[in-house]
């Protein structure tokens, strides 16, 4: 599992590596329904922060799993937040409905991408621990088994 999770790190730029094991860059955005999403408000939870786009094939494979995990592990403290890197929200809403994504989906921008070391390929997933630190950066389609296992591990940490 470790090798799979580290694989993304080996390909990362220095700016992307710099984000790891530090406090997750703070952001506040409105989700697609206009509700405020403040990353700080989720401190104490394990946050799965996923950058995706409607035109990204591997993203569409992962997202339903993340939705299922939100249901399954939400009560234990998991919060999924998705950041769409689409240029416009009009194409995002139908996909969110179709995939039944029952977690906050916000629109990304250049600033947010750079804040997280540069989102220069999709998908990219960050796992943020209860302490607010970035625990993992997974680039490309994640090994879902390994990722779920890591989530459980982080949820077990109090």
């Amino acid at each position: 599992m470790a090798s799979v999770l580290v694989a993304g790190l080996l390909r990362a730029t220095p700016a992307q590596v710099a984000v790891l094991h530090k406090q997750a860059p703070e952001f506040v955005r409105n989700d697609l329904s206009g509700k405020k999403v403040d990353l700080n408000a989720y401190r104490g939870k394990v946050v799965l922060l996923n950058f995706w786009a409607t035109w990204c094939g591997p993203c569409q494979v992962e997202l339903p799993h993340f939705a299922a995990w939100q249901k399954q592990y939400g009560p234990a403290g998991l919060q999924v937040i998705a950041v769409s890197m689409d240029d416009e929200s009009t194409s995002v809403r139908p996909v969110v409905r179709k995939l039944k994504l029952d977690f906050p989906v916000v629109m990304g921008d250049e600033k947010l991408g750079i804040l997280y070391g540069g989102v220069l390929g999709l998908p990219v997933t960050f796992l943020i621990g209860r302490d607010g630190k970035v625990n993992e950066r997974i680039e490309g389609g994640a090994d879902l088994k390994a990722l779920e296992s890591k989530i459980k591990q982080l949820l077990a940490q109090r």
Partner: peptide, 21 residues
């Protein structure tokens, strides 16, 4: 491709030409 990705990083001298899809 994506304009959002272009604004984060692109090859110097290259021009954004819209998503081919």
């Amino acid at each position: 491709g994506s304009h959002l990705m272009f604004t984060q990083a692109h090859i110097p001298g290259s021009i954004y030409a819209g998503a081919g899809a």
